[in-house]
């Protein structure tokens, strides 16, 4: 009997490009354990000095919002313009504010 082929598990890779910067999704890799995932992420996504730090997360542990809920989730914030600084009128000549 032929065993089912495996290409190992899928992981998501997040790279911080400089210290202090946010971690940004770079892409995915395959690996069977977390050490391998870390090494494969490094060997795949930081070959050109792109990173100072790496997060790897098993893809199955990522929860994504449902696009069907976009109306409910994101539209209500559109009219809360008072959350933005440009909403407020400052007196002429006011500085450092």
């Amino acid at each position: 009997m032929k065993a089912l082929d495996t290409q190992l598990d899928l992981w998501e890779v997040f790279i911080q490009s400089k210290s202090g910067q946010p971690y940004i999704h770079s892409g995915s890799i395959h690996a069977s354990d977390v050490k391998m995932a870390m090494q494969n992420a490094r060997d795949t996504y930081t070959r050109r000095g792109e990173g100072t730090s790496i997060w790897v997360v098993a893809s199955k542990n990522i929860n994504a919002s449902n696009p069907d809920d976009n109306d409910m989730l994101f539209d209500p914030s559109n009219d809360k313009i008072y959350r933005h600084p440009t909403f407020y009128v400052m007196p002429e000549g006011a500085k450092n504010i």
């Binding site: 065993a3 082929d5 495996t6 290409q7 190992l8 069977s32 354990d33 391998m36």
Partner: peptide
């Protein structure tokens, strides 16, 4: 194939 299987088994 045997390498990938070994990684899974480990």
């Amino acid at each position: 194939a045997w390498v990938r299987e070994a990684a899974e088994a480990y």
